Amino acid sequence: MTLKFYELTGEYYALIKAFSKEEAIAFYKENVCDIDSRVVQVSMQYAWETVKPWIGVITIENFVANRVDVMLSDLAV
C-alpha cells in the first residue's frame, strides 16, 4: 500500500501523509484538531513543494518514511 498526501483545512491546517483518506482524518483528529475539516488528496509533488521551505525542520527522511505522519500543521505537533 502506498502513502498518499492529504491537505486538511478547517479549524487548523495540516498536511498529512497516510495510506487512506479515512486514516488521514483519524490521525488529524487525534493529533491536530478533533473538529471535522475539509480534506483534499494532493500529489506528492504538491506536498514536496509545500514542505520544501521547511527542510531542516522536516527532514527528507521523514518526508519519504513509510509511516503516517503530520508533515505540516498550524500547531506544534
Rank of each mutant, 00 (worst) to 15 (best):
M1F: 06
M1N: 09
T2N: 14
T2C: 07
T2K: 12
L3G: 04
L3M: 15
K4T: 06
F5Y: 15
F5A: 03
Y6F: 15
E7S: 13
E7K: 10
E7W: 04
E7R: 11
E7P: 00
G10I: 03
G10P: 05
G10V: 01
E11K: 09
E11I: 06
Y13L: 09
A14C: 04
I16V: 13
K17A: 02
K17I: 06
A18M: 03
F19R: 12
F19S: 06
S20R: 01
K21L: 10
K21W: 00
K21I: 05
E22Y: 07
E23W: 00
E23V: 03
E23I: 06
E23Y: 01
A24T: 02
A26D: 11
A26T: 08
F27L: 06
Y28D: 00
K29P: 03
E30R: 12
N31A: 02
N31G: 00
N31M: 02
V32D: 01
V32H: 02
C33E: 08
C33Y: 07
C33A: 12
D34L: 02
I35G: 00
D36Y: 05
R38K: 10
R38Q: 09
Q41L: 01
Q41N: 09
V42H: 00
S43M: 04
S43E: 01
M44L: 08
Y46F: 14
Y46S: 09
Y46N: 07
W48V: 05
W48A: 13
W48F: 15
W48S: 04
E49S: 11
E49D: 15
E49M: 10
T50Y: 06
T50Q: 11
V51Q: 05
K52M: 11
P53I: 07
I55K: 12
I55G: 03
G56S: 14
G56A: 12
V57C: 11
I58T: 12
I58V: 15
I58W: 06
T59W: 09
T59P: 05
T59N: 10
I60C: 07
I60F: 13
E61Y: 14
E61W: 09
E61C: 05
N62G: 12
N62S: 15
N62I: 08
N62M: 14
F63M: 06
V64K: 14
V64H: 13
V64T: 15
V64A: 11
A65V: 09
A65E: 15
A65G: 13
A65H: 11
N66F: 08
N66W: 08
R67D: 14
R67F: 09
R67Y: 12
R67C: 10
V68S: 11
D69P: 00
V70T: 13
L72A: 10
L72D: 03
L72W: 08
S73R: 07
S73L: 04
D74P: 07
D74L: 04
D74S: 15
D74R: 08
L75Q: 13
L75T: 13
L75F: 10
V77I: 14
